[in-house]
């Protein structure tokens, strides 16, 4: 475990805490994409099937369980909580995520390291994670008043991805035989998806303005 990896994981953890706090404290999920949360649920379920087959470390297992539990909590709130569900931007959150899920799954069937159920689902989760933020970014673009916490949530998620790239570079230089091309390419694609958002986030922060994304 290097410092970049740990920092990346912590950013991921903070992003989820920010989202949980925001929804819980304001009793509102305005500006939050349920589609992105559901895509993350699929990503985590498919990737963390190895919870049943292999033990890596207490840290690893704990983080996996936190990611799974928190994502399902957010989905539950947005769908069923009697106060929170009313605040969901149903009409704006219209990204058709089947157009992400199907191609990612087909790609995982073709491009994988081993043609087994576990490995294909794991690879599928890698591809799907790369694009899972898209419904959220589209929703932010349609939201006129992006509140700080929602903006911070996406910024923290993007930072987590950027730090993972540094982690890969560090590991590549320090560990012999460490390489994972599919993960790297997907991770780089995933980070590129955030660049536009980063630009507007930092600009609004420097100019002390409210964040808004041009349509």
């Amino acid at each position: 475990m290097n410092i970049f990896r740990l920092a990346g994981d912590m950013m991921h953890l903070f992003s989820i805490i920010v989202l949980l706090l925001k929804i819980n404290a304001t009793r509102s999920c305005r500006g939050v994409s349920l589609k992105t949360q559901e895509l993350y649920a699929i990503v985590f379920v498919c990737r963390y099937l190895d919870l049943f087959t292999s033990f890596i470390s207490l840290y690893n297992t704990t983080m996996k369980l936190i990611f799974l539990l928190s994502t399902f909590t957010i989905i539950y709130w947005m769908r069923f909580h009697k106060v929170i569900r009313v605040t969901y931007d149903r009409e704006q959150d219209t990204f058709r995520y089947q157009f992400l899920i199907l191609p990612c799954f087909l790609l995982a069937l073709v491009l994988n390291n081993e043609f087994s159920a576990m490995e294909v689902l794991w690879t599928f989760s890698i591809y799907l994670e790369a694009v899972a933020i898209l419904p959220q970014l589209v929703l932010l673009q349609r939201t006129n008043n992006i509140d700080n916490l929602t903006g911070n949530y996406v910024f923290l998620l993007g930072s987590y991805r950027a730090l993972y790239i540094l982690n890969w570079i560090y590991r590549f230089m320090t560990e012999p035989n460490y390489r994972q091309y599919l993960v790297w390419i997907s991770g780089i694609v995933q980070t590129i998806v955030y660049i536009d958002f980063f630009y507007y986030y930092i600009r609004s922060w420097r100019n002390n303005e409210k964040l808004s994304l041009p349509a």
């Binding site: 990896r5 994981d9 991921h12 190895d50 292999s54 890596i56 470390s57 690893n60 983080m63 996996k64 990611f67 390291n113 081993e114 794991w122 993972y164 982690n167 590991r171 035989n177 460490y178 390489r179 994972q180 091309y181 599919l182 993960v183």
Partner: peptide, 10 residues
Amino acid sequence: VREKIAKDEL
């Protein structure tokens, strides 16, 4: 040649 996958990442 198969990659050595680092499944220790999250």
